[in-house]
Simulated scan of single mutants.
Amino acid sequence: MAALRRDFTLDDLAPEAAAAGIDRTILVQVLPDADETAEFLSLAGAADLVAGVVGWADLTSDRLTDTRSWRLLSDGWPETASPRWPARH
């Protein structure tokens, strides 16, 4: 179990994905942590391997628009990443 109880990075994922013929992946957040959501969004904006993020946001918060994730999304991130998103038909 010790081998699994650590952080895994895109540097860990990239060679494994390439060996399996996978060129795009989705990061799925499992903890309700706004900082981790922002980190995942930043990774997706900077890495071609990441096609999207399933993140977390407290939709009941009065401060939702003050979060780092909201700023990343509202500062043009979707436009930057839109070529990575599949077209919807």
Rank of each mutant, 00 (worst) to 15 (best):
M1K: 12
A3K: 14
A3E: 15
L4H: 10
L4D: 02
L4S: 08
R5E: 12
R6T: 05
R6A: 07
R6W: 13
D7Y: 12
F8I: 05
F8A: 11
F8Q: 08
F8E: 06
T9Y: 12
T9F: 11
L10R: 03
L10Y: 04
L10F: 02
L10K: 09
D12P: 10
D12W: 11
A14M: 09
E16G: 00
E16S: 06
E16R: 15
A17R: 06
A17L: 03
A19Q: 09
A19W: 04
A19C: 04
A20H: 02
I22P: 00
D23H: 12
D23A: 11
R24I: 00
T25H: 10
T25I: 15
T25S: 11
I26R: 03
I26L: 15
I26Q: 08
I26N: 03
L27F: 05
V28M: 11
V28F: 11
V28K: 09
Q29N: 07
L31V: 12
L31I: 07
L31A: 12
L31R: 06
P32Q: 13
D33E: 13
A34W: 02
A34C: 01
D35E: 14
E36L: 13
E36A: 06
A38W: 04
A38R: 04
A38G: 04
A38K: 04
E39I: 03
E39S: 08
F40S: 01
F40V: 00
S42I: 04
S42T: 10
S42D: 07
G45V: 01
G45E: 10
A46T: 03
A47E: 14
A47M: 01
D48F: 00
D48I: 00
L49C: 08
V50C: 01
G52D: 03
G52K: 03
V53L: 01
V53N: 00
V54H: 09
V54A: 11
G55C: 01
G55M: 01
W56I: 05
W56P: 01
W56R: 05
A57F: 03
A57L: 07
A57W: 02
L59F: 13
L59H: 06
L59R: 12
T60D: 15
D62A: 09
D62W: 02
R63C: 04
L64G: 00
T65C: 08
T65I: 06
T67K: 04
T67P: 07
R68Q: 12
R68V: 08
R68W: 06
S69C: 02
R71Q: 14
L72F: 08
L72N: 07
L73D: 03
L73Y: 09
L73Q: 04
L73P: 07
S74H: 10
S74F: 05
D75L: 06
D75A: 14
W77Q: 11
W77H: 10
W77E: 12
P78Q: 14
E79G: 06
E79L: 14
E79K: 14
E79F: 06
E79W: 03
E79Q: 14
T80H: 14
T80E: 11
S82R: 15
P83D: 02
R84S: 04
R84W: 04
W85C: 12
W85H: 14
W85D: 10
P86Q: 05
P86Y: 08
R88L: 15
H89Y: 08
H89E: 14
H89W: 10
